[in-house]
Design a protein around this nucleic acid. Structure first.
Lengths: 306, 306
DNA sequence: ACTCCCCATAAGGCCAGTTTATGCCCCCAT
DNA sequence: ATGGGGGCATAAACTGGCCTTATGGGGAGT
């Protein structure tokens, strides 16, 4: 690492955060109460675990575990660190579940097609649950808009689909699996953030907004709710881009609450109540008319409803 | 969460998920549109970035980036992977912000004391926001129950505190910064999950529950709401342990909605409405009477929306 | 054509993490 | 008391991944 130590602006966080293996090890230690047991579970030797925990403590500058000849318990700081670490590892598990489904395997027993918002925010969790229940089910995933989902289902390239629009594409049966609603959000510095009254539909319709492109489920719902009048300030091709633009203060955006939950909680964005507009939408599972999901597809479907 | 730390048959997820540095690089490529530019931003050379992205694609079995002599753009699959990766990196950034506050003890310009739930779920995000706004503010953090927070403030060992109980400890002024409410949760297989009617307070009081230990803010609110009648099925010392017990079906648990948001969304737990019990509580910032927060403390306070 | 910006490949170096091999400590059962 | 076993630490050697430097090829604007 010859070039590393320029003490200027903060570099990447990767070298200040222990890697996933170390965090996973820490979780195992917390759960099992012993370095050796944790090491066995992860398939490494006890000295490796010992050394890794120690170097993590050195890196963070905090003692994480209390070692004793009877085992190891977390310190107070260690418990906190472990809770924070768990969120990273959970996100990594979701990543893994999703990524494994993207690998286009011919022998997949369940082929799923989903709209972007669902694929982005919900599907990894469902796949994780499915894996816990049926570890040997190989799943493949394709993401696209409603039309693309319908096409894959009707051509037999997918067994089960998920869409987020208002209408169900022709030739498909569906079941509502969850409800979502769109929210109007602005950066905390925006004028609207200081409003006391809720927004009138006419105001929303007459204000240029940061929007997803036409054809997206989100845009479809908004256009319908406003009677086709949504005025774009700018059109972006991903939820992430819209969020980033809104956070940076470019203007008001309309997004699924799924997409902005975290931003609202941390006040990076502020939600503006709107009156007289139906911004709710159903999230639906879809399949070719008559072909009720069976086998793995039925399994996944039942997981999405609880 | 269980699935994130279940004993893996296939070994750890760490070797199936790219490390944080690679994910961060991918995010930079997505944002900047070029491998070389991303490499420069992270302070590595272009061949290193090229090689790292390539090995990530090999590991995941998916093409992530479309290279051209004019730059690089994400493939469709790459966009999805990047969105999932962003969640890992965000969790890592929160971890980093929190961990740094656990370390900086001596020369901290802002010393914070917080109750466990707040330290666990909210503080890392606040610290992240604070760092974005005032990058040079060194923060130290101690977590403990309300009494410990009060003690640190009154002894001058902390400048600002956060508590979640019903009452404000003596000698402290406070400001409500957010509202939280406790929810009754059970595993999806539990009898209560199939109830149609909401739960009566008397039923809750007469059912043995999975609870935090006495002295915790959560327990204090519940005991007060039920008139001191909460019957423990088992008492556990961390929110995480309570959650894990509830998910495994051991019985009903009572937890902050902050703690179970994800579990509810993924149906690993089901919330049970309760009638006639006030399970709401305020989250408060606290400081020694008369010493209104100034400087960094005031800055942090304003981020929490006091 | 010239030049700039992009990316790929090759060869060598370095560090982190791992394994094997010991040693010490404490608890408990014989 | 006396082994035995579980638990952790340290030392030394190995390995592999990531980084760097050096170099080459391809497209786009001037």
């Amino acid at each position: 690492m010859g070039s590393a130590e320029q003490p200027g602006i903060v570099g990447s966080i990767a070298h200040r955060v222990p890697d996933l293996g170390a965090l996973e090890l820490l979780l195992a230690v917390a759960r099992l109460g012993s370095l050796g047991a944790a090491a066995r579970e992860l398939g490494i030797t006890q000295p490796a675990a010992s050394s890794r925990i120690r170097s993590m403590e050195r890196q963070l500058g905090v003692a994480l575990v209390d070692r004793s000849p009877r085992g190891s318990r977390l310190t107070d700081a260690g418990a906190l660190v472990t809770d924070w670490a768990r969120r990273i590892v959970e996100a990594a598990a979701a990543f893994d579940a999703g990524a494994q489904a993207l690998r286009d395997r011919r022998d997949s027993r369940l082929r799923v097609a989903a709209s972007m918002t669902i694929a982005e925010y919900l599907l990894p969790g469902w796949l994780l649950a499915l894996r816990a229940q049926r570890p040997d089910t190989a799943v493949s995933l394709h993401a696209g808009n409603s039309a693309a989902v319908a096409e894959r289902l009707l051509s037999g390239e997918a067994d089960l689909g998920f869409v987020e629009g208002l209408t169900v594409p022709g030739g498909l049966d569906s079941a509502v699996i969850a409800h979502d609603h769109l929210v109007v959000v602005v950066a905390p510095g925006h004028v609207w953030a200081r409003r006391r009254r809720s927004l009138a539909a006419s105001e929303l319709a007459s204000t240029p907004l940061i929007l997803r492109e036409k054809g997206s489920g989100t845009r479809q719902v908004l256009d319908t709710a406003l009677g086709g009048l949504a005025r774009p300030l700018i059109e972006l091709s991903s939820t992430t881009a819209v969020k980033a633009a809104a956070v940076s203060g470019a203007g008001p955006a309309v997004l699924s609450e799924l997409a902005v939950g975290e931003e609202l909680a941390l006040r990076r964005l502020v939600g503006i109540p709107v009156e007289g507009v139906a911004l709710a939408r159903d999230l639906r599972a879809v399949w070719p008319t008559g072909h009720r999901p069976t086998g793995p597809a039925r399994e996944l479907l039942s997981l999405t409803r609880g």
